[in-house]
Amino acid sequence: MGLGLSILQSQVAVGDTHAFRQIFDALFSNLTKFSFSFVHSKEAATEIVDELFVQLWVKRADIMKINDLRVYLYTATKNASLNYITKKAKQIELEPYENLQVQMTDVVSPEQIMITKEILQKIKETIDSLPPRCKLIFKFVREDGLSYSEAAEILGLSIKTIDSQMVIAVARIRAKLMNVIETSPNKIYFKK
């Protein structure tokens, strides 16, 4: 993905709308969700990310100056979202990651039959109960496919923090699922 994106980036620089569309398809939805976690409004999040893409295209001649486009877009989304909310409430600026409402993607009908509805539900519940910052980091790494260093850069946190937050998330999911595995009466059947 990282390499693909930098190729698209150079195509956008010369005005290729198809390449721009591919970047849009790959990132728009995730960036909007990221923005939503700050602004708590789908309309505002969409407007923020729209504006970002408009600017990206308008200033496409300069796009090659961007080192890592993905990190850049996430960071720009964060900054624009924080600007948006600080206009509304000053105090959020101080604790930017404590008022997040992270939207996770719903997993649609898993192909791997191993995962039953029950398991999915348990995982969903566990993730929903994670602290906001932890949940956001977990979503970044799993759904947005960001590396620890990318996530750290976007959020202005250390890689160590990302690592430890991931451990917290996985530990909670594991505890929950181990419980299910151990108490499941039809354990053998369940394991197929």
């Binding site: 898993p110 791997q112 398991i119 799993r142 699922l177």
Partner: peptide
């Protein structure tokens, strides 16, 4: 096995 297959099952696209 469970978490690996869950981790990979995701709907990343719009």
């Amino acid at each position: 096995e469970l978490i690996t297959s869950w981790w990979q099952t995701q709907n990343n696209t719009d």
